[in-house]
Design a protein around this nucleic acid. Structure first.
Lengths: 190, 190
DNA sequence: CTCCGTTCTTAATCTACATTAAGTTTTTTC
DNA sequence: GAAAAAACTTAATGTAGATTAAGAACGGAG
């Protein structure tokens, strides 16, 4: 149970049997089916989610009804709306399963308590947050540095398998342009 | 000494006298003058920087020589290139003082050691990283959601004092457009 | 105070990508 | 396995913001 997460944690810190036991008692598992939501716009986000299997997307919908994907999460990624989670304010985002997935849920209340008990886990989540932040810094750089076409090439080269797994319009949404423009790019590359 | 930082830390966790003492012994202070660099492109970034006074910018230069600002840091912000710092790879960024500033330097090696000794500090840095990540998530949202003009309005309304402190061309660079376009926007608002 | 480099402005032209709209193909559902 | 819904494509037209170029204003060093 929870082996994917335990393995991930032990890549960064080591846990005692006791800690593993306590941790496991605090976790719950959810198996959202395709298109199921973990939270929606307007709700306060209450948990941090670890993808053991499958794929999620974090997105928002603008006033014209257009969806924009802020982040994907695949196996071994934590995902949540960290401002909503920390400040307990309503989230502007939707967190949704793209495929039917297996997600490990760590409730905020529970996380607080758990981390005061276990410095190793505190350390693990510090490292995870720093890595996510580093990735976000690079993402911001790429958004402004590269053109739409360059971002498309870079993404497909970096994550060829992942591109197969998701609908094209989601890729367009993540890369920051329209499905029509992506279609044009694809036609050009053939 | 280091009072700005100690106050910031104690907004999130409490430290014992002993911990404060150990922490202080590990920190160093730097007073970069205007335009001085803390690190430059191609260097591996070795430390995490806390702005006690003044203002820094993290930016990169593209192949046409155009600078783009990825982040500002003012009083009470930590700033660094977290990918370079964590993976010890060369940074694509420059970290530079915009004003002559007072910066508290926490070397990576030292941070590692310090955090294994103090769970409270581990906790503090976990919280700081999560907040920074939350802010980055929102930044990514705003970049795709708002037009250049809307980002300008939003930024000037959110940080009116800060806008006074920095040159216009840096604001343009941060907001993701040219100084010429900013100039046009400003003319329009008058 | 004045000179020189930096910053800011104006305006003409240009382009990457959006919008709209219609048609086609693929996937889902009953 | 037919019908409906979702996803993808093509093409005409539109626009936010870039680029280029030149001049004006500002600010700091001597």
């Amino acid at each position: 149970m929870y082996t994917a997460l335990l393995q991930h944690i032990q890549r960064f810190v080591s846990l005692t049997e006791e800690e593993i036991h306590v941790l496991a008692s605090y976790l719950t598992e959810k198996k959202p089916s395709k298109k199921e939501f973990l939270f929606q716009e307007g709700q306060v986000c209450t948990a941090n989610y670890f993808v053991a299997k499958g794929c999620l997307r974090l997105y928002y919908v603008n006033d014209k009804g257009i969806e924009t994907i802020v982040q994907f999460a695949i196996e071994n990624w934590w995902i949540s709306d960290y401002q909503s989670l920390e400040r307990q304010i309503p989230s502007p985002f939707y967190l949704q399963a793209i495929e039917s997935s297996t997600v490990i849920v760590l409730e905020k209340q529970v996380q607080e308590e758990l981390l005061t008990k276990s410095p190793s886990l505190e350390r693990y989540f510090r490292i995870v947050a720093q890595r996510a932040y580093g990735a976000a810094q690079m993402r911001i750089k790429y958004i402004s540095e590269l053109s739409g076409e360059e971002r498309y090439v870079q993404f497909t080269e970096s994550f060829p398998d992942f591109v197969q797994r998701i609908p094209q319009y989601m890729l367009a949404s993540y890369l920051g342009f329209t499905p029509e423009f992506l279609s044009k790019l694809r036609a050009k590359k053939r």
